[in-house]
Design a protein around this nucleic acid. Structure first.
Length: 466
RNA sequence: GCCCGAAUAGCUCAGCUGGUUAGAGCACCUGACUGUUAAUCAGGGAGUCGUAGGUUCGAGUCCUACUUCGGGCGCCA
């Protein structure tokens, strides 16, 4: 017997008339008094299920086949033939069907062959990959991850596995999850009565990483083109459809590069990813366009077609001030751009992706490079219609004196960042990089509205089921 | 963290200004019919209306608190 995936079988592999076996889960079953049942089987390999035509003379027809319901697992062996029915190409004329697992209580089995609300499916996160939508999102998630690795590899980047456990607050940005093996009911205390973290597992305070950037910079200043791509954690109490407490982030870092090079990379990167998904996941993209977001495909095509607009932060403020729009948050040089400002810039003023560059130094992180004007730093945000900020990046401060000055300004302890400072002492070079929130990118590609549906098991404040 | 909304069958929802035994579609079970494909048709079972209080002769409906979910904002990716 030749075991094939549903995807292969639908493509007619290994050939018409051949005996094949497919294994998967029942989507629907319809019976015909002509003496057969139609069982649609899905195995995750592609969007469409394959139809197994099961004749009533099979020995287990009455006892088993007629009791198949949505979600039951089946192993179907039969002849691959072109379908007599309308629509699909190949189907399986079954000669044998095994049922490893029925659905215990079909009436309460949560996944029905119909549309469910996203809220409901979040409550059954362990079963939602059985739906068309989450199957498609899951395949897309894999495809986008691989596309990222492939693009960066082709560009000469090395994937650096930066640590999940960290002992420094990477950017002073965001609350971190504490990691400790201390007995919470009996904490060791020092002379001042404070918790004595010298007694903790690592001999000091430890946290889950909020970014691999600082670590990856060190490898950048040796390997030239690197990236880190892994899970990151934020203990922020952010209650929005765009935030997760655990999410994946890809952070490329390039040496001998300035902010312009960084923006070039970001643009090439995003366009390459979008091209890949349109080519490799056409069936799933068509599904998203049909069922989730009508512009799912067209907006990716538009994104690829147009060059990004690049504007200075200072000019962006000028545009907003002259817009005549009433913003809830007033616009003035020195303020950070609010969601409403970004939306106006991208969706109304420019109408395509925008890179905003060179922000006031007060509103950006300590490691960003101070510009010659003494007022701004070489930071950039990539804003896109429909998503807002998708990428944040910067040219890093490679000059020790300027870095120290900024660290002091932010009240950061030079001792804690000794190794980071070393990078500026031993063969420093201009370098730059950016961070991209993977699930936000996936939301945009699939057209899904809530980031909790872009990761298999979402973790957010107050919720970590499954 | 702030503001707003929602919670009725396994799912998606209806249930007007409070008034007898709470409804529909899908799903499930039974039957009819059919190379069917979100099949169709007939019948059936299925709900202490999120929880706890309160107002009232009477509460799914009004009030309060809580819980959960969702949306907007902030923080950001």
């Amino acid at each position: 017997m030749t075991v094939v995936s549903v995807k292969q079988a639908l493509a007619g592999m290994p050939g018409e008339g051949r005996e094949v076996t497919v294994r998967g889960w029942v989507r629907t079953r319809r019976d015909s008094k002509a003496g057969l049942s139609f069982v649609h089987v899905s195995d995750g390999s592609c969007l469409a299920p394959i139809q197994a035509v099961v004749p009533a003379d099979l020995p287990n027809y009455q006892d088993e086949v007629l009791h198949l319901t949505t979600g039951a697992s089946v192993i179907v062996t039969g002849t691959l033939v072109t379908s007599q029915g309308k629509g699909q190409g190949f189907e399986i004329q079954a000669s044998r069907i095994e049922v490893p697992g029925f659905v215990d209580d079909p009436e309460t089995y949560p996944i029905q062959p119909k549309q469910h609300s996203m809220e409901f499916l979040r409550e059954v996160a362990h079963l939602r990959p059985r739906t068309n939508l989450f199957g498609a999102v899951t395949r897309m998630r894999h495809t986008v991850m691989m596309a990222i690795h492939r693009f960066l590899t082709e560009q000469g980047f090395y994937w650096i596995n930066t640590p999940i456990i960290t002992t420094s607050d990477a950017e002073g940005a965001g609350d971190m999850f504490r990691l400790s093996t201390l007995d919470l009911a009996n904490l060791p205390r020092d002379d001042q009565g404070k918790v004595d973290f010298r007694k903790d597992f690592f001999g000091r305070e430890a946290f889950l990483t909020v970014s691999g950037q600082l670590n990856v910079e060190a490898y950048c200043l040796a390997m030239s083109k690197v990236y880190t791509f892994g899970p990151t954690f934020r203990a922020e109490n952010s209650n929005t459809p765009r935030h997760l407490a655990e999410f994946w982030m890809v952070e490329p870092e390039i040496a001998f590069a300035d902010l312009g090079d960084n923006a070039d990379l970001a643009e090439a990167f995003l366009k390459a990813i979008f091209r890949t998904v349109l080519e490799e996941r056409a069936d799933d993209m068509a599904f998203f366009a049909q069922r989730v977001h009508p512009q799912a495909i067209s907006r990716l095509e538009a994104f690829i077609a147009a060059p990004f607009e690049r504007i200075e932060y200072t000019d962006a403020i000028g545009i907003l001030e002259k817009s005549g729009k009433k913003f809830e948050y007033p616009v003035a040089w020195g303020v950070d751009l609010q969601t409403e400002h970004e939306r106006y810039l991208v969706e109304e003023h420019v109408g395509r992706p925008v890179v905003v560059m060179n922000y006031p130094q007060e509103i950006k992180a300590f490691y960003m490079r101070l510009n010659d004007d003494g007022k701004t730093v070489a930071a950039m945000d990539v804003l896109a219609p429909g998503i807002g900020e998708i990428i944040g990046g910067a040219q890093r401060e490679e000059r020790l004196a300027q870095l120290d000055a900024r660290m002091q300004r932010f009240g950061l302890d030079a001792e804690t960042y000794a190794w980071y400072r070393d990078l500026r002492r031993y063969g420093t070079v201009p370098h730059a990089g950016f961070g991209l929130g993977f699930e936000r990118l996936l939301c945009y590609i699939c057209g899904i509205a809530n980031i909790r549906d872009a990761i298999p098991y979402p973790r957010v404040a107050g919720s970590a089921e499954f």
